[in-house]
Design a protein around this nucleic acid. Structure first.
Lengths: 198, 198
DNA sequence: GCAATGCGTGTCAGTGACTGACAAGTCCGT
DNA sequence: ACGGACTTGTCAGTCACTGACACGCATTGC
């Protein structure tokens, strides 16, 4: 009976499609002309809709860049859940991050372009860090179970480790970007984690 | 006499005084009415000047809150320089952070009020994290000298450790705020650092 | 003393990110 | 064909922020 459910599923599908289309166009403009110099009106025009409608798909301009990072965070969290419970917190996160790294390396060209754009868009750094801070919320619960010591401290420890691991990841990716994709992220990441634990 | 030197020094002095005055008034309004609900016009009116002039003292509204964090970062960096060169990177930062913690504990009332305001001002979290990211720039050079291993990796390692240490600090301070100042920050910080290295 | 200079400030106009409200159009099941 | 759910454009308005200009006040040079 052509229930409203199929209807809403379809709407959600097209909605996601439009969203992706906007994000793609926006990223292209940002990479080409720089983030700050590209106005939302430009993006809107390039997709053929009004700026008001663009804001119906993205809460902020920043979200056109960092919006997809939410699902990246979820993916990393999933990868973490998939690790055997016997693994220590650090080894588990390290492996969970590897998956994300492989995605980076899969399309180096695009990702390097994006990373380069981020560098001269200082207003995006805060947004980026804030997104990653939210990743910690997804990682901490699982990490908590891999820790010992006083119960009330474990969640805190888990968050600290998660942050530290992401800091290692960021620096490894930065180095990768700086060297134009030469240095493999995975190796650097391992070295940094070892240093932090040193 | 009345040389130009005294003159410009005096100007700088009054400038800093006005700046402090604005920051104070702004913080009072932010704590009382919330950051987002307080407009720059409100702040300007409360100090008796035009909004345009307020922006001559603070580059952004955020800076009225996090502006002083620049010098905090410098202080921590100085404290780090003061540690004996024989100390390992981790022990040196740990001690450097202790100084900052003491300042927090020195005026718990005000600092708790500020910390509480920050919680329901989501737009400030990114700015906060970005400021701390800049702290890393100040800490890394000294930490680099305390590391071994391949030369080209040391600066990267230093940054990772600095970030990790700040993550520990943040979580310790958060816990302190959450418990209304009950749990001493220093103890939690030590526990978290131990966990990260564990 | 008096003009010149420098600096702080207010005002005004303008941009860009965002929001609320309303009207018009489209798609869908009935 | 009708009604409702959903999408979109338009318009007006807020708020952070910026550049330009003019005024006033204090210090400086003569």
């Amino acid at each position: 009976m052509a229930d409203t459910r199929r209807n809403s599923a379809l709407r959600e599908l097209t909605r996601q499609a439009v969203r992706a289309r906007i994000a793609e166009a926006a990223m292209a403009l940002f990479v080409a002309n720089g983030y700050e110099r590209t106005t939302v009106d430009h993006v809107a025009e390039s997709v053929g809709m009004s700026a008001r409608s663009v804001f119906r798909y993205f809460p902020t301009k920043e979200d056109m860049v960092v919006g997809h990072l939410d699902e990246v965070g979820v993916k990393i969290a999933d990868a973490l859940e998939a690790r055997p419970t016997t693994e220590s917190a650090w080894t588990a996160v390290r492996h969970a991050l590897k998956h994300h790294i492989e995605e980076l390396a899969a399309d180096p060209e695009t990702n390097l372009a994006i990373a380069t754009m981020l560098i001269d868009a200082p207003s995006l750094l805060p947004a980026l860090l804030a997104k990653q801070a939210r990743w910690v919320d997804g990682l901490a619960p699982n990490l908590t179970q891999r820790l010992d010591g006083p119960l009330n401290l474990r969640p805190l420890k888990a968050r600290a480790i998660a942050f530290a691991a992401l800091a290692c990841l960021n620096n490894a990716v930065d180095e990768w970007t700086r060297t134009g994709g030469a240095k493999p992220v995975g190796r650097t990441l391992d070295a940094l984690i070892a240093a932090v634990r040193g």
